[in-house]
Amino acid sequence: MKKITRYIAPVTLCFVLLLNSCTKDYLDVNTDPNNPAEVTPELLLPPVIAHTAFIMGGQYQIIGGFWSQYWTQGSTGNQYNAYDQYQVPNTTFDRQWTELYSDVLTDCRILSIKGEETGKPNYSAIGYFLEAYAFHVLTDLHGDIPYSEALQGVDNISPHFDSQSKIYDELITLIDIGISKIDRSDLAIYPDADDFIFHGDMDLWEKVCQYS
């Protein structure tokens, strides 16, 4: 028995030493190798625009066309009967709601922050403009929506719904902030092909915002 105990102690010690010395580095492999952890504003902007255009020019345009009486369901089809008959269950716009908040609006907020952090405030300005646009159409369709407590991740998992009139006021402020971020200095960096709408022409962006 004595012989055995003589070995147990050093062997156990080895295990413990091994464990403490290498595990930390060995186990530090939990960064996703398939997707980047950081991106630049130039890479964030294009999907924000594409996604906004896809929703506004797609499903939202269809419902708008029907409810403003410009469109009607053809007599041989039935795809849009629910719109045509104002029988829209509460799930109909789930996809658009989900994508505007979790894809478009989240990315707008990040764009606004990253634009300034990286010395490209024109990207920030477009971030504010597109955020205002998405919230504007959301509240047009749904009325009261989460705004002031929205987009905070787990810090607020049930953001309350703000009144539509309050949101409209806040959106004007948001656009004003965006306009104030526009950088026309000599060193200004303008978006290019990554701005699918105005190719970085900040005068046109400002014009749109002033008129809306």
Partner: peptide
Amino acid sequence: IEFPYNGVAGFTKGNVLGN
């Protein structure tokens, strides 16, 4: 719509929040 779109690359924030 898929990216790269017309030669322009793009990324969006992942929808699953890290914990």
